[in-house]
């Protein structure tokens, strides 16, 4: 819960609600981008890596940081748990 998981923004799905589709280690889910949006235009976020906490992107990170963090979460056994709970969770985009 404390550690975020990195993902790449692959689509802006709802500009008004600031939602995007983020690819998190192969699992695509809707993520709230409000905290990382610079102004109203979300398109600069496309392709960027973000750190996702419980479905909300809390920071933009560089690809190297993303790779290291994914590796760390794998070693801690957290990546699998997060991805599973993401897949099992009620809502889908």
């Amino acid at each position: 819960m404390c550690l975020g998981i990195p993902g790449q923004v692959v689509e802006i799905s709802d500009r008004e609600k600031k939602l995007g589709i983020v690819d998190i280690s192969g699992v695509k889910r809707q993520v709230n981008l409000a905290c990382v949006a610079q102004g109203e235009d979300l398109s600069p976020l496309l392709g960027q890596w973000v750190l996702v906490h419980v479905g909300f992107a809390m920071n933009v990170i560089d690809p190297e940081e993303a790779a290291r963090t994914i590796e760390l979460l794998r070693e801690l056994g957290e990546a699998q748990a997060e991805l599973e709970s993401m897949q099992k969770s009620g809502a889908r985009p």
Binding site: K88, S89, G90
Partner: peptide, 9 residues
Amino acid sequence: RTVYSPSDA
């Protein structure tokens, strides 16, 4: 129910 995110709730 187990949820991953408050937005799922």
